[in-house]
Design a binder for these strands. Structure first.
Ligand SMILES: Nc1ncnc2c1ncn2[C@@H]1O[C@H](COP(=O)(O)OP(=O)(O)OP(=O)(O)O)[C@@H](O)[C@H]1O
Length: 717
DNA sequence: AATTGCCTTGTTTTT
DNA sequence: CAAGGCAATT
């Protein structure tokens, strides 16, 4: 890093110049615990960016002693870039540039980094694999089968969620959990937990929660290791602190114990992850945990119009369990919030398109006129240049069949898209449940509007992608049972259920890894010769792949697998679905391209690491044109010009499962608050009269949340 | 072993 | 409705 002898006045000024007084004080308070507690859009994340730059430039702190924790990889990437930009501006280009970078990442990525180095102390190999959701369920199913537990009565998911929330987030080992177990279920869970951990260890794998839990255990058990990291990371910063769980809290606490330099920012109003163990109490107790803490409240919102800020204040005011903060803005009132009722989910999508393509660039006065009456009365209005599309769309609803009017609408939309008149990345559609994306997607497809859906079926959870990753995992970790089971007969090669279970017993009894077991298929008793040959053929296939992979890049290894295993042919079966799956595989190869500078098994490990911890939000590209659809949960920390909140109906938002517990209802409301505050300029709240739920159409009731915004801020349609 | 088709079950939200 | 499990086919 470049060190400056004297903090120069002008540089300090320019780092601080884009911050208000309170933000500046958070940046200047570099030593000791700092808590920034503030509402949405008040510039909390901005503080962290500037604080890192300030530490490096003005306090001459080495970048490598800075650790900043974000909620997603995308947020980490963005933060890195913004810090770098600030630094670049300050660094004299003639001076040599040190490549040292501050460490910015999620809790999980930080823990992986530590564990890759240190996990030997806990008896794991440091090339452990990371099991995702799917892998965990697959493993758990195996555990339950082995223990002869009825999976109908006790679902794998249930065990996993109890283990995650009650045991792992509270750092309880199977043994400790067993001691606390009281009733039958808990005792059973304790046994399952024990076996589950045992199998993870045998397969050299950790699940998501283990990453955090093991790191904490490591630090607690080996003070010398902890001290090493405490000395290394002298400055710790955490974004979105309200959504940390107990294990993460302990981790931050341990890391900062020596230096006491911990700066956390967050907003208890935006805590939306309690269902997975996040505890708002962490941020509320910060002052108790760190009595010397400096606490800073930011009150000015820089993101949204006055209408939006006021509306969100009213929303959150309905909650009882919350801190009493203020949030104001000096921005213009802007447009009112639109509450729109539509007939059903199909019309919901069409309404949104109508707003985006028909009216968005028109004046809002005009929109006022475009109410149903006018539209229905004058057919000729269709040729009207302004608002024509909305009219047309409403027209479709009128004469159901969807005649030439729909075509007109489609053509007009296409024209606008091609003309580059509409910047689709200014808009976002948010909803409560992923299932809602399907109907919206259909409408977007129908009108040829480019879009990206975040979440739903995540890229790395797609079957074809998981299959390929499983092949790669087998190459580097021959005892990865979950992956082995997944691809041993994919594409079909005559290795069925029976053969698999014989193989499983054999591997387990002889305590050999699965690849060895397959190789020694001729030693498996009572194995039909057809199955034996199939296994031996599979073994030679894998050995061949492994051999050839030695001097190939990850991308080439994927190609090799695709060709040698017949997977390529298997996928490209001539159907459109096959084509879509093939596209996903190409996308995977694009990701692999990043690792072109490496080769062999090691390169596979790097590649797998990249794929294990990413989140769908990480795929969001700002430049990418296309309308974005995601759950409100996924929108945390993001901002858009125009936000559509779809499905504002009782039972959906707030969700039916949250209605009877007041605490859960308040969490729903916080989610609502998050959704509304993503918007810079305009919010739409849409509710249907009828919605298909599990096949049958049901009448819906408008969400109680709609009434929580004062009338004068709303324009009712 | 693989394919087909009927049955149940269920989804809130996800690093 | 649709995914996953299970049984009855070939
Ligand atoms: N001092 C400032 N002057 C002008 N604009 C600012 C200032 N601070 C922040 N902003 C802008 O306000 C918006 C919100 O900032 P930021 O994302 O840092 O807020 P936040 O508190 O982290 O929000 P949230 O809690 O909703 O994620 C951003 O567009 C940012 O550029």
């Amino acid at each position: 890093m470049i060190y400056f002898k004297e903090p120069s006045k002008t540089m300090t000024d320019s780092i601080l110049s884009k911050l208000n007084g309170k933000q500046q004080s958070a940046v200047l308070q570099t030593e000791g615990p700092v808590l920034v507690l503030a509402g949405a859009g008040s510039g909390k994340t901005r503080i962290l960016v500037h604080r890192i730059a300030y530490l490096i430039i003005e306090k001459q702190v080495s970048p490598s002693s800075v650790l900043a924790v974000t909620f997603t990889n995308k947020a980490a990437e963005e933060m890195k870039q913004r810090v770098e930009k600030l630094l670049k501006r300050k660094i004299n280009p003639s001076q040599s540039i040190d490549l040292d970078q501050p460490w910015v990442g999620t809790f999980h990525s930080f823990c992986v980094r530590v564990l890759r180095k240190e996990i030997g102390a806990l008896g794991f190999k440091n090339n452990f694999l990371i099991y995702d959701d799917y892998d965990q369920i697959a493993l758990m199913k195996g555990v339950l089968e082995k223990m002869v537990i009825d999976q109908k009565q006790y679902s794998p998911r249930m065990f996993l969620s109890v283990i995650s929330n009650q045991a792992k987030n509270n750092l309880l080992t199977p043994r400790q959990y067993q001691h606390k177990a009281k009733d039958f279920i808990e005792k059973l869970t304790a046994k399952v937990y024990q076996e589950y951990q045992k199998q993870l260890r045998e397969h050299n794998a950790l699940d998501f929660d283990d990453l955090i839990m093991m790191t904490v255990q490591l630090f607690q058990k080996y003070p010398a290791v902890l001290e090493k990291y405490q000395r290394r990371f002298k400055y710790l910063m955490v974004d979105e602190y309200q959504d940390t769980n107990h294990a993460q809290y302990l981790l931050t606490n341990l890391l900062s114990k020596k230096s006491k330099n911990i700066c956390v920012v967050g907003d208890d109003w935006q805590g939306i992850y309690s269902f997975r163990g996040a505890d708002i109490q962490n941020i509320l107790d910060f002052e108790k945990d760190y009595p010397q803490a400096k606490i800073i409240y930011l009150e000015q919102n820089y993101r949204s119009t006055k209408t939006i800020v006021e509306a969100s204040n009213h929303i959150i005011a309905k909650n009882k369990a919350r801190t009493d903060k203020k949030l104001w803005t000096d921005s213009k009132p802007g447009e009112k919030i639109t509450v729109q009722q539509v007939a059903n989910e199909k019309e919901e999508g069409e309404y949104i398109l109508g707003e985006i393509f028909g009216l968005r660039e028109e004046t809002s006065d005009h929109r006022g006129e475009a109410d149903d009456e006018i539209v229905y009365e004058s057919e000729e209005e269709n040729n009207h240049p302004a608002g024509g599309i909305l009219d047309t769309i409403l027209e479709i609803e009128k004469n159901k069949s969807g005649g030439p009017e729909k075509k007109t609408a489609k053509i007009a939309i296409q024209k606008k898209i091609r003309g580059g008149l509409i910047n689709l990345s200014d808009y976002v559609i948010l909803y409560r449940t992923n299932a809602q994306s399907r109907a919206l997607e259909e409408t977007l497809l129908e009108y040829g509007v480019p879009y990206q859906i975040i979440g739903s079926v995540k890229f790395y959870e797609r079957k074809e992608v998981k299959d390929l990753l499983a092949y790669l995992r087998i190459l580097v970790e021959p005892n990865d049972q979950v992956s082995m089971k997944r691809i041993i007969n994919e594409p079909p090669r005559s290795i069925g259920r029976k053969t698999w279970s014989l193989l499983e017993n054999f591997a387990e009894a002889d305590k050999i890894d699965y690849l060895k077991a397959v190789k020694q298929a001729d030693k498996i008793a009572s194995l039909p010769s057809r199955a034996r040959n199939a296994l031996l053929f599979f073994a030679s296939l894998i050995i061949d792949l492994k051999d050839k992979a030695q001097n190939l890049k990850p991308r080439e290894i994927i190609d090799l697998i695709l060709n040698k295993t017949g997977y390529k042919k298997h996928v490209q079966d001539g159907t459109p679905e096959g084509e879509a799956r093939w596209e996903n595989i190409l996308e995977l190869k694009t990701v692999a391209k990043k690792f072109d500078n490496q080769q062999g098994l090691e390169s596979i490990r790097s590649f797998l690491e990249e794929t294990a911890l990413v989140n769908d939000v990480d795929f969001l590209e700002d430049g990418k044109k296309g309308l974005t659809l995601m759950t409100t949960h996924n929108a945390k920390g993001l901002e858009y010009k125009v936000v559509f909140l779809a499905g504002m109906e009782e039972g959906l938002f707030p969700h039916a499962n949250s209605l009877f517990d007041p605490a859960e209802l308040e969490e729903e409301r916080r989610l609502y608050y998050v959704g509304v505050t993503r918007s810079k300029e305009k919010v739409y709240l849409i509710h249907t009269r009828q919605r298909n739920i599990w096949g049958s159409s049901r009448i819906t009731i408008p969400s109680r949340f709609l009434e929580e915004i004062p009338e004068e801020l709303v324009e009712n349609k």
